[in-house]
Design a protein around this nucleic acid. Structure first.
Lengths: 235, 235
DNA sequence: TGTACATCAGTGAACGCGCGTTCACTGATGTAC
DNA sequence: TGTACATCAGTGAACGCGCGTTCACTGATGTAC
């Protein structure tokens, strides 16, 4: 047997998939703290020790789930940004809405990405790339907005030195020129408002505060965007 | 013996304090998930069962810590709001800074309040009052800003119906009149931006993004406040 | 094509750990007369 | 002031639970000649 892929290799790939899928379901139902290798093995009818042929530790499995979650969220955001909406404001609003929807459908995965860090767990290198995808999406939308004029320059320049590092500037291919030279410092507020608003709702802090959470979310994104020179098309 | 307070009662009060203090320290060092009754009892030289004379369950102890944390944060925010800074913008910036400072000094307590909800733990009634204190502080600052004219009315009215419920309106003593009639919908963005920015930094998402986290935080609060008609005095 | 050997997935028992909670108990503290 | 009784803080053993990880093993799958 050597038909490019052996039966053993196929079985391995398949079980690898099943393990991750089961783990993801447990994560979705109980949260990261309750994710246990033994429980996953039990459900798959395996000895718990068998999982160590696939992941060297619980943390490794968790890392795989984190990377997948960042990628799923990144896909959703990129797709929304690439939609037909005209202008940076409309595109950003579409991104925000898609992120919120994904978060509502994947509460525990959202918590894993943006909630309290799992104690004792240090995110390894592999997560860094996927984690910056939403920021990249924002960067692209804003740069397009600068290019097509749908991003207003700020009314006045922020005082003091610029604060965004070259890591941030790298996302937009270098620091923008005047009159947008304080754009990077401003822009991260959009990310913070997005993540903050979603977490605020998801973690239960806006309970009983609004008659329509989805509508308020859009308002919040629009209000935050005003400070960045972006007009989000409401209603 | 009945000198108003018996020796037994004094001992009880004292031990109650020690339990909470020890629990709070464990929480601060390890996070909520790692908080264990047995560990607290061990450190105090007690049998673990002894704690049940003081708290009927682990969750009850956790609730006490949550209430205390909300109150500590509320104290800090109220004090900052009552400071000498003139105008709503300066006062709100002072509040934001004090909240951030408290959060940096009490990371796990912040996570307990605004991070991922503890799975299986349902916040009881007792936490609701203390939890709304920061919102009350914001409400007071804004109302003072309306009164003294340091809060700009918005350039244009938000489209659609108002979304804030009467629970929110209650914080400012009823819905504000024109031209501030969409103020409540806008204002919650300040809260979301504050909590969002602090969590973003604390949970590690802004690592390597800024040369000066404290300075950027102020910028972020100022940018968010522009959409609410509030000028924060930077630099 | 057939055989000898190497690889590797999965097993099951074990180690060592810590947890929340219950319960019958003891002995000290407080109270009523 | 002294005695009889009630209250209550704290004990220590036990119940029942689940976890991550290691290790020597077996038997099937794959490979080289």
């Amino acid at each position: 047997m050597s038909a490019a892929v052996t039966a053993r290799a196929r079985a391995r790939t398949e079980l690898e998939r099943e393990i991750k899928e089961t783990a993801r379901r447990h994560l979705a139902e109980q949260g990261a703290a309750a994710l246990s290798l033994r429980a996953v093995a039990r459900e798959l009818g395996l000895a718990s020790s068998a999982l160590y042929r696939y992941y060297p530790s619980r943390d490794a499995l968790l890392t795989a789930l984190i990377v997948d979650a960042y990628d799923a969220l990144g896909d959703v955001a990129e797709q929304a940004a690439g939609g037909p909406a005209p202008g940076a404001g409309a595109r950003w609003l579409a991104v925000c809405r898609s992120v919120r929807t994904w978060a509502l459908e994947h509460r525990h995965e959202w918590a894993l990405l943006y909630g309290t860090p799992v104690p004792g767990y240090a995110a390894p290198q592999d997560t860094i790339g996927p984690a910056t995808r939403p920021a990249r999406v924002l960067a692209d939308v804003l740069m397009a907005g600068v290019a097509d004029g749908t991003l207003r320059p700020p009314a006045r320049r922020l005082p003091g030195p610029r604060l965004a590092t070259s890591a941030v500037a790298g996302l937009v291919g270098g620091s923008p020129a005047a009159p947008y030279d304080d754009l990077l410092d401003r822009a991260v507020v959009l990310l913070v408002a997005l993540v903050g608003a979603v977490s605020y709702e998801l973690f239960g802090h806006s309970r009983n505060a609004f008659t329509d959470d989805a509508a308020w979310f859009a308002v919040a994104m629009a209000v935050a965007a005003e400070g960045v020179g972006l007009d989000l098309p409401l209603g």
